Amino acid sequence: MITRTLSFLLISIVLTACSVFDPEANLKSEKQLWETAQMHMDDRRYLDTITTLEELDRRFPFGQYADGTQLNLIYAYFKSSKFDLARLTADRFIRLNPDHPKAAYAQYMKGLSSYASNNSIISRYLPGDETGRDLGGARDAINDFTQLLERYPDSEFAEDATLRLIYVRNQLSEYEVNVSRYYIRRGAYLAAVNRARQVVEGYPSTPAVIDALIIMYLGYEALGLPQESQDALFVLSKNYPQYVAGDRGDQRLASGVLYEEGETLAGILTFGFLGSARDLADRLATFSESRRQDASRRPLATLRPAEGVPTIDKPSVVTDVFF
């Protein structure tokens, strides 16, 4: 009896507290919540939008505006930089509605959220080389955009997703080259070769494969493996002949690529172990930067896709439940 009395009192206190702190809780209808959310959305008050839509989703998970609630939540989360929540909500929507007319939109927003999650607040206000830090979100973006192209090849987002996919792959390959240069700087030539090989095998169509093949050549030379170093140069000569001089079996980097006429790799590696490695890494960094800035040797697809193409706005109103 005492236990029941205490339970009743506790429930009464909780209900009273709810009415005090949120007197309008659970009073608005489904339509009123939807209209309030749209008003917040139009005013770009995304946090208020999220609060209202989450309440709508909690109270009316299968209501008249169920699909629209999920789609608008994806957009509001994205605009509020809540990228993980945007991805989770998009993934939930796609799993429940794989054939929905807006499923491609949800998949596209999932990809955008994956890539955007990689950009820290600091990097937004202090721009720098994106390839110098881990691009974990970019790997998820590759998977998301690839799924978009496989599932919805004719969607309005396919062309932009393709460009973004190419761009992200280029960024990842540049990141791997950055790591390879780090190993060169530390004199860890075997680790540098192995990381560069990942670029050649995993991202063969990206411009960074030039740097990767050069690093493989340098690494094998430093390790005393002439046959392997010549193989790397031969592959480079077949694809980018302007960087290689000499005939098969006696090839070398063309003059001006990393060192000038009269300089040799052996000479650079001779003077001081770590000092020479740092010099070689600096030369590689300079070469990479010049190669990336040379528009004549850079495919158009390596450029960052224009923002807002296609325009990403809040999804159109969805008033019917889709099963």
Results as ranks from 00 to 15, higher is better:
Ser7Lys: 15
Ser12Met: 15
Asp22Ser: 13
Asn26Lys: 12
Leu27Asp: 01
Glu30Asp: 02
Gln38Arg: 15
Met41Cys: 04
Arg45Met: 07
Leu47Trp: 04
Leu47Asp: 09
Thr52Val: 14
Glu54Pro: 04
Glu55Met: 14
Leu56Val: 04
Arg58Ile: 03
Phe60Cys: 00
Pro61His: 11
Phe62Trp: 06
Phe62Arg: 10
Phe62Met: 12
Asp67Trp: 01
Phe78Leu: 03
Lys79Trp: 02
Lys79Glu: 06
Ser80Gly: 12
Asp84Cys: 05
Arg87Glu: 10
Asp91Gly: 04
Arg95Phe: 07
Pro98Cys: 13
Gln107Arg: 09
Lys110Met: 03
Tyr115Leu: 13
Asn118Lys: 05
Ser120Val: 12
Ser120Phe: 13
Tyr125Met: 10
Leu126Pro: 08
Glu130Ile: 14
Leu135Asp: 00
Gly136Tyr: 12
Arg139Asp: 03
Asn143Trp: 06
Tyr152Glu: 03
Asp154Gly: 06
Asp154Thr: 13
Glu159Cys: 01
Val168Gln: 03
Gln171Tyr: 00
Leu172Gly: 05
Arg195His: 02
Ala196Val: 08
Thr206Glu: 13
Ile210Asn: 06
Leu218Ser: 05
Glu221Arg: 15
Gly224Asp: 08
Leu225Ala: 13
Phe234Met: 10
Pro241Phe: 09
Gln242Gly: 09
Tyr243Gly: 11
Val244Leu: 12
Tyr259Gln: 10
Thr264Phe: 06
Phe271His: 04
Ser276Pro: 07
Thr286Phe: 14
Arg292Glu: 02
Gln293Asp: 09
Asp294Asn: 14
Pro299Leu: 11
Pro305Thr: 03
Val309Ile: 15
Asp320Pro: 01
Phe323Glu: 04
